[in-house]
Structure formats: C-alpha cells, structure tokens
Design a protein around this nucleic acid. Structure first.
Lengths: 208, 208
DNA sequence: ACCTGAACACCGTTCAAGT
DNA sequence: ACCTGAACACCGTTCAAGT
C-alpha cells in the first residue's frame, strides 16, 4: 500500500471537506471524526493530516464554506427593490432561514470552541465582517447613523438576530415552528430600527 | 474494594456536580470527562453512573446551577430604584457581566448540544423561563405592551442581548474589552425599547 | 448495597515502514 | 512522495466481581 496518487493534494482537500460537511450536516459535530471522514472518502485517517493540520483545521474550513453559502441570500436581500428597512428585515429573515435550513452547519460556525477563547483564523473573521458589511448601507439609510455609530448599530442588530436564531434553534424559547421565529426577528429589527431612527436618545434612560 | 459508604447518594451527587462545575469553569467542556470528575473526588468513573444517568445528565445539572446563580443579579437589576428602561438596561448589563465572569459555565448552558435538536429537560426550561419572566414587568411598563406582544418582546430583547453576549465572548465581533460589549448592549436595549414605545409601527416596513 | 476495575468500542494524532 | 497501519494516550459507558 501507499503511493496511490489518485488525487492531487487539492482534490484530496476537497474530498475531505465535502465528507466533513456532509457528516456535520447529518449528525452535527458529534457525527464528525477523522475516522468517519477517512472511511467516507476511502482513505485512512492519517491521510487527513497530510492535507490539514488537525480536525479543528478541517472544521474551520467547512465553516468558511458555510459562511460563503450564507453570503448570497443576504446579499440578495439587501439588493432587493425595497425600502432600507424592508431590506434589513428581509436580510434578517434570510439569516434565520439559512440557519433553519442548515442547522448543524450553521451551529458549527458559531459554537466551534477554539482552545481558550482565542480568536479564529483571519479567513473566518473576514467572512463574518463581510456579512456584517452587507447590512451597513441599508442601515445607514434607515438611521442616518455613520462611522463608529453605524458600525456599532450593525453589530448590535446582527448579534440580536443571531441570538434569536440560536435560541430558537436550540429550543431555549417556547416557540412553535418557524413562523414564531420570523415574527420575533421582525419585531426585533423593526423596533430597533424605529428606535435608532428616533435619534438622540443616547443614554437617556428615562424614557419608560 | 467497594462498599465505602463514606457519602450518601446526595453527598456523592454534590461532590460530582462540584467537581464537574470546577472542571468546566477552568477548561470549558473540553476539560470535562467522567474520568477527570472521578479523579477529582477520589472515586472511579463507574461511581458517577450510580448517581447520574450519564455525563450529559451531569452537565445539565451543572447548567441548572449556573442558571440559578444568574438569577440573583438579574433580579437585583430589575428591582432597582430606577425607571423601567433603566432597570432593563441594568438587567442586560448584569447578563453580559455574568457571562464574562463565568464564560465557560455560561457557554455550557447554551451550547451544550442535546442529541438531535430535542428540547432539554423541564428543570432547565423552567429556569430560562424564570429569567425571561423577570424582565416582563419593566418591559410592560416601558412599552405598554401586554399579553402575547409582551411575551414576544421579552423573548426578542433577551435573545438580542444573548446574541451580543455570545458573539462578543467568542470574539466574532471586532470588540476590544468589556466596554465595547456593554456599549452594544445598551445600544440594542435602548433603541429597541424606544422603537417599542413608539407603538403601532407593526409591519409597516416603509419607515426608512 | 456500594463501589471497583477491567473491558468494549470508540476517539485524535503521530510516525515508522512500505511501495 | 504518498499513504498505510499500527500504536499511544485518551474517551463514555457497562457490568461482573468483590466486600
């Protein structure tokens, strides 16, 4: 055995990522193992380590693919013929929809725990930044915010939708089906944007 | 060996949960194993299965403890001598602060993946419901919402803060330190409440 | 009755050895 | 150069056997 050379290093990488993606999609991270990947592609576990540093490295590259797939529907939402607020509502819905359609892959992107809280690789950070950047133009238009304020608003809004997504997906809320999730998303986005558009409230906590 | 009877079943349970809690707090879920717990309390791994069904069961009981510890600071925040909006801002800050103080225990509560998306045990659901219920009174006062609308608002707001928390803790946002996280939290809560108080916007997406 | 200790079926990762 | 297969140090969980 050894020296089959049936695939180039790149092809082998694609095979591994494809198998890993399918395994995660089917059974979550619990379904993923080096031995399972190897079995799926007809190689032995050691082969994986010729292409990737370790299993974490494989997972991170699967996550990069998932974040790439998430980009298109969000991009389409903010490019739609709609008001800025409408674009943002639709972008949020697209986010939730994607998470519901690919729950295990989506969760892998955000629950994969690096050792000791350290930051992920740049190619993951970049992709997340690109997603957040998508909602900046409509958010600027809907709120007249700019600069650091706009940036903070984009992060807050995106995080908020993300939170609804994760708690809904893991059944931590008492929701039934996707309609309730979408309703919560709309509620958060619309009220946040309404509040943001009513400028100058800043830290005046006495509005209640 | 066998038949030491140095501890009652209840004491053994406490020992196990205490050791598990410490292991998770120190090294996250990665630091937890039946063998590590056993070693920490001076028993063999088999003993754990006399008290708990499995390791998942242990984790869920640690999570119940964590959620109980989270209750007090939130309760204190909403009981403070402040406006309803101020109480909610402080409750959100308390949530973020707790998560930052106990990142591994907090993450264990929300990232622990049950097999196949099924819902967690009632004693976990109950505790989460109790937390959400805490913010209902000030939220009702700040927004004049009631019934299903109030319930949805509480879930949306809580999820939103949760989302900021998790993304901040896992470094998915470009934030430096806890100040930026608190600022995002304030931003989300205040603008959401402002928008919520400006009733009747409902699904009118054309406000941008 | 309580607890052990060995076993089973798994892991991630490494690396000498084969072609 | 490429890949294997066996090994190492781990897992969660079970359960016959000991006291």
């Amino acid at each position: 055995m050894a020296r089959r050379s049936e695939h180039t290093r790149e092809q082998l990488g694609e095979l591994i990522l494809g198998a890993a993606e399918q395994l995660i999609a089917e059974n979550g991270m619990a379904g993923l193992s080096a031995r399972a990947i190897a079995k799926a592609i007809g190689y032995t576990p050691g082969t994986i380590y010729l292409v990737f540093a370790n299993l974490d490295d494989v997972i991170l590259h699967v996550n990069a693919r998932t974040l790439d797939r998430l980009f298109a529907p969000i991009e389409k939402a903010v490019a739609g013929d709609d008001t800025p607020t409408g674009q943002l509502v639709r972008a949020a819905r697209a986010y939730v929809e994607f998470a519901r359609a690919h729950p295990n892959l989506w969760r892998a992107c955000f629950e994969h725990r690096l050792p000791s809280e350290q930051t992920g690789p740049d190619y993951i950070d970049m992709r997340i930044q690109r997603l957040i950047a998508l909602i900046m133009p409509p958010l600027a238009a809907a709120s007249r915010a700019e600069g650091a304020h706009l940036n903070a608003a984009a992060q807050a809004l995106w995080s908020g939708v993300h939170g609804i997504c994760i708690l809904s997906l893991t059944n931590k809320l008492h929701l039934v089906g996707g309609q309730a999730t979408e309703h919560l998303t709309d509620d958060l986005v619309i009220h946040y944007l309404t509040g943001l558009a009513a400028r100058g409230v800043g830290t005046s906590l006495g509005s209640g």
